[in-house]
Write a protein that binds this DNA or RNA. Structure first.
Length: 219
DNA sequence: ATCCCGAGGG
DNA sequence: CCCTCTGGAT
Protein backbone atom coordinates (compact mmCIF):
# COMPACT_ATOMS: atom_id res chain seq x y z
CA UNK A 1 0.00 0.00 0.00
CA UNK A 2 1.24 3.45 -0.86
CA UNK A 3 1.86 6.09 1.76
CA UNK A 4 -0.84 8.41 0.47
CA UNK A 5 -3.39 5.62 0.87
CA UNK A 6 -2.26 4.96 4.43
CA UNK A 7 -2.85 8.60 5.32
CA UNK A 8 -6.27 8.56 3.68
CA UNK A 9 -7.28 5.40 5.55
CA UNK A 10 -5.94 6.79 8.80
CA UNK A 11 -7.87 10.03 8.52
CA UNK A 12 -10.99 8.16 7.42
CA UNK A 13 -10.82 5.66 10.29
CA UNK A 14 -10.05 8.08 13.09
CA UNK A 15 -12.42 10.78 11.86
CA UNK A 16 -15.19 8.24 12.18
CA UNK A 17 -14.17 6.62 15.45
CA UNK A 18 -12.51 9.42 17.41
CA UNK A 19 -13.92 12.61 15.87
CA UNK A 20 -13.17 14.71 18.92
CA UNK A 21 -10.05 13.22 20.44
CA UNK A 22 -8.35 15.53 22.91
CA UNK A 23 -5.79 15.55 25.68
CA UNK A 24 -6.43 13.56 28.85
CA UNK A 25 -4.50 16.06 30.95
CA UNK A 26 -6.70 18.07 33.31
CA UNK A 27 -6.40 21.86 33.00
CA UNK A 28 -8.61 24.93 33.02
CA UNK A 29 -6.43 27.61 31.40
CA UNK A 30 -3.29 27.95 29.23
CA UNK A 31 -1.00 28.33 32.24
CA UNK A 32 -2.29 25.10 33.78
CA UNK A 33 -1.88 23.20 30.52
CA UNK A 34 1.70 24.44 30.26
CA UNK A 35 2.42 23.18 33.78
CA UNK A 36 0.73 19.84 33.07
CA UNK A 37 2.61 19.25 29.82
CA UNK A 38 5.96 20.04 31.47
CA UNK A 39 5.12 17.47 34.14
CA UNK A 40 4.08 14.88 31.57
CA UNK A 41 7.59 14.10 30.29
CA UNK A 42 8.23 10.37 30.69
CA UNK A 43 5.19 10.11 32.93
CA UNK A 44 1.60 8.97 32.43
CA UNK A 45 -1.16 11.57 32.14
CA UNK A 46 -2.96 9.80 34.97
CA UNK A 47 -0.06 10.43 37.31
CA UNK A 48 0.18 14.07 36.22
CA UNK A 49 -3.52 14.57 36.95
CA UNK A 50 -3.11 13.19 40.46
CA UNK A 51 -0.33 15.70 41.13
CA UNK A 52 -1.98 18.74 39.56
CA UNK A 53 -5.14 18.25 41.59
CA UNK A 54 -3.27 19.67 44.58
CA UNK A 55 -0.64 21.65 42.70
CA UNK A 56 -3.05 23.96 40.86
CA UNK A 57 -4.96 25.13 43.98
CA UNK A 58 -1.64 25.95 45.68
CA UNK A 59 -0.24 27.73 42.58
CA UNK A 60 -3.28 29.05 40.72
CA UNK A 61 -1.35 31.74 38.81
CA UNK A 62 2.10 32.24 37.22
CA UNK A 63 2.77 34.85 39.93
CA UNK A 64 2.13 32.42 42.78
CA UNK A 65 4.39 29.80 41.21
CA UNK A 66 7.10 32.35 40.43
CA UNK A 67 7.09 33.44 44.07
CA UNK A 68 7.65 29.91 45.36
CA UNK A 69 10.77 27.76 45.46
CA UNK A 70 11.82 24.56 43.74
CA UNK A 71 11.94 22.89 47.15
CA UNK A 72 8.31 23.59 47.86
CA UNK A 73 7.14 22.64 44.39
CA UNK A 74 9.11 19.40 44.70
CA UNK A 75 6.93 18.32 47.60
CA UNK A 76 3.83 18.61 45.41
CA UNK A 77 5.26 16.75 42.42
CA UNK A 78 7.52 14.15 44.02
CA UNK A 79 5.54 11.24 42.56
CA UNK A 80 6.15 12.18 38.91
CA UNK A 81 9.33 11.26 37.09
CA UNK A 82 12.28 13.65 37.42
CA UNK A 83 10.67 15.71 40.21
CA UNK A 84 13.86 17.66 40.92
CA UNK A 85 14.33 18.84 37.36
CA UNK A 86 10.66 19.57 36.88
CA UNK A 87 10.39 21.56 40.12
CA UNK A 88 13.23 23.82 38.98
CA UNK A 89 11.76 24.07 35.48
CA UNK A 90 8.31 25.01 36.76
CA UNK A 91 9.54 27.85 38.96
CA UNK A 92 11.91 29.09 36.24
CA UNK A 93 9.15 28.88 33.67
CA UNK A 94 6.76 30.87 35.85
CA UNK A 95 9.35 33.58 36.47
CA UNK A 96 9.99 34.07 32.77
CA UNK A 97 6.26 34.03 32.13
CA UNK A 98 5.80 36.83 34.65
CA UNK A 99 8.90 38.85 33.81
CA UNK A 100 9.08 38.55 30.02
CA UNK A 101 5.58 37.69 28.84
CA UNK A 102 3.30 39.69 31.13
CA UNK A 103 2.07 36.43 32.69
CA UNK A 104 0.49 35.40 29.38
CA UNK A 105 1.42 32.09 27.77
CA UNK A 106 3.14 33.06 24.48
CA UNK A 107 1.75 31.81 21.18
CA UNK A 108 4.88 30.85 19.23
CA UNK A 109 7.09 27.81 19.73
CA UNK A 110 10.11 30.14 19.62
CA UNK A 111 8.93 32.16 22.63
CA UNK A 112 7.67 29.06 24.43
CA UNK A 113 11.04 27.36 24.08
CA UNK A 114 12.72 30.26 25.84
CA UNK A 115 11.30 28.88 29.07
CA UNK A 116 13.04 26.13 31.05
CA UNK A 117 11.38 22.74 30.74
CA UNK A 118 9.71 23.70 27.47
CA UNK A 119 11.19 21.90 24.48
CA UNK A 120 9.82 21.51 20.99
CA UNK A 121 7.28 18.85 21.91
CA UNK A 122 5.76 20.84 24.79
CA UNK A 123 5.75 24.04 22.71
CA UNK A 124 3.95 22.27 19.87
CA UNK A 125 1.27 20.97 22.24
CA UNK A 126 0.59 24.50 23.51
CA UNK A 127 0.36 26.21 20.12
CA UNK A 128 -1.82 23.39 18.85
CA UNK A 129 -4.23 23.01 21.78
CA UNK A 130 -4.38 26.60 23.01
CA UNK A 131 -3.78 28.60 19.83
CA UNK A 132 -5.26 26.25 17.23
CA UNK A 133 -2.16 26.22 15.08
CA UNK A 134 -1.50 23.25 12.74
CA UNK A 135 1.43 21.97 14.81
CA UNK A 136 2.32 18.32 15.43
CA UNK A 137 3.91 17.46 18.76
CA UNK A 138 5.89 14.25 18.39
CA UNK A 139 6.13 12.32 21.62
CA UNK A 140 7.01 8.70 22.21
CA UNK A 141 3.57 7.48 21.06
CA UNK A 142 3.39 9.58 17.90
CA UNK A 143 6.93 8.56 17.00
CA UNK A 144 6.33 4.83 17.51
CA UNK A 145 2.89 4.65 15.87
CA UNK A 146 3.98 6.70 12.86
CA UNK A 147 6.82 4.32 12.18
CA UNK A 148 4.80 1.16 12.73
CA UNK A 149 1.94 2.22 10.49
CA UNK A 150 4.42 3.29 7.82
CA UNK A 151 3.40 6.94 7.82
CA UNK A 152 7.00 8.11 7.79
CA UNK A 153 10.16 6.73 6.17
CA UNK A 154 12.60 4.73 8.28
CA UNK A 155 15.10 7.52 7.72
CA UNK A 156 12.96 9.81 9.92
CA UNK A 157 15.00 8.96 12.98
CA UNK A 158 14.34 12.04 15.09
CA UNK A 159 11.11 13.55 16.43
CA UNK A 160 11.71 16.65 14.30
CA UNK A 161 11.96 14.63 11.08
CA UNK A 162 8.79 12.69 11.96
CA UNK A 163 7.04 15.97 12.71
CA UNK A 164 7.93 17.40 9.29
CA UNK A 165 6.73 14.27 7.51
CA UNK A 166 3.39 14.22 9.32
CA UNK A 167 2.82 17.94 8.77
CA UNK A 168 3.52 17.44 5.08
CA UNK A 169 1.03 14.61 4.58
CA UNK A 170 -1.87 15.22 6.97
CA UNK A 171 -4.54 17.71 5.84
CA UNK A 172 -3.98 20.99 7.64
CA UNK A 173 -7.37 21.04 9.36
CA UNK A 174 -6.76 17.53 10.76
CA UNK A 175 -3.25 17.98 12.15
CA UNK A 176 -4.28 19.05 15.66
CA UNK A 177 -6.76 16.21 16.12
CA UNK A 178 -4.44 13.73 14.38
CA UNK A 179 -1.91 14.33 17.14
CA UNK A 180 -4.43 13.06 19.66
CA UNK A 181 -5.47 10.16 17.42
CA UNK A 182 -1.92 8.88 17.33
CA UNK A 183 -1.53 9.36 21.09
CA UNK A 184 -4.70 7.46 21.92
CA UNK A 185 -3.93 4.70 19.46
CA UNK A 186 -0.42 4.41 20.88
CA UNK A 187 -1.60 4.45 24.46
CA UNK A 188 -4.38 1.89 24.24
CA UNK A 189 -3.82 -0.27 21.13
CA UNK A 190 -0.43 0.18 19.52
CA UNK A 191 1.39 0.00 22.85
CA UNK A 192 5.17 -0.16 23.00
CA UNK A 193 5.88 -3.64 24.31
CA UNK A 194 3.25 -5.98 22.88
CA UNK A 195 0.99 -4.11 20.47
CA UNK A 196 -2.62 -5.31 20.60
CA UNK A 197 -2.89 -6.08 16.91
CA UNK A 198 -5.87 -8.34 17.62
CA UNK A 199 -7.90 -5.31 18.68
CA UNK A 200 -6.56 -3.02 15.97
CA UNK A 201 -8.76 -1.95 13.09
CA UNK A 202 -5.83 -0.43 11.25
CA UNK A 203 -4.23 -3.83 10.56
CA UNK A 204 -5.06 -3.71 6.84
CA UNK A 205 -3.13 -0.45 6.53
CA UNK A 206 -0.25 -1.20 8.92
CA UNK A 207 3.24 -1.71 7.59
CA UNK A 208 4.51 -3.36 10.77
CA UNK A 209 1.62 -5.85 10.76
CA UNK A 210 2.22 -6.65 7.09
CA UNK A 211 5.85 -7.31 7.75
CA UNK A 212 5.07 -9.45 10.79
CA UNK A 213 2.67 -11.54 8.72
CA UNK A 214 5.30 -12.01 6.06
CA UNK A 215 7.99 -13.00 8.57
CA UNK A 216 5.71 -15.40 10.50
CA UNK A 217 3.05 -16.64 8.05
CA UNK A 218 1.25 -18.79 10.66
CA UNK A 219 -0.12 -15.56 12.12
C1' DA B 1 13.19 -5.34 32.83
C1' DT B 2 10.74 -1.80 30.21
C1' DC B 3 7.99 2.06 29.41
C1' DC B 4 5.34 6.57 30.36
C1' DC B 5 2.51 12.88 25.77
C1' DG B 6 11.15 14.96 27.21
C1' DA B 7 14.47 18.41 28.21
C1' DG B 8 19.03 20.09 29.32
C1' DG B 9 23.75 19.71 29.25
C1' DG B 10 28.25 17.95 27.72
C1' DC C 1 25.90 12.49 19.07
C1' DC C 2 25.74 10.94 23.99
C1' DC C 3 24.33 11.07 29.01
C1' DT C 4 21.49 12.16 33.08
C1' DC C 5 17.35 12.95 35.63
C1' DT C 6 14.32 9.31 38.24
C1' DG C 7 8.82 7.64 40.32
C1' DG C 8 5.28 4.56 39.35
C1' DA C 9 2.91 0.93 36.61
C1' DT C 10 3.12 -3.46 34.28
Amino acid sequence: MQKKERYNELVEYFSTNYPEAETELNYSNPYELLVAVILSAQCTDKRVNIVTEKLFPRFPTPESLAASTADEVFEYIRSVSYPNNKAKHLVGMARILVNDFNSEVPNTIEDLQKMPGVGRKTANVIVSVIFNQPAMAVDTHVFRVSHRLGLVPKTAKTPLLVEKQLIKHIPKDKIAVAHHWLILHGRYICVARTPKCGECNLKPFCQAYEKQKFDTPHL
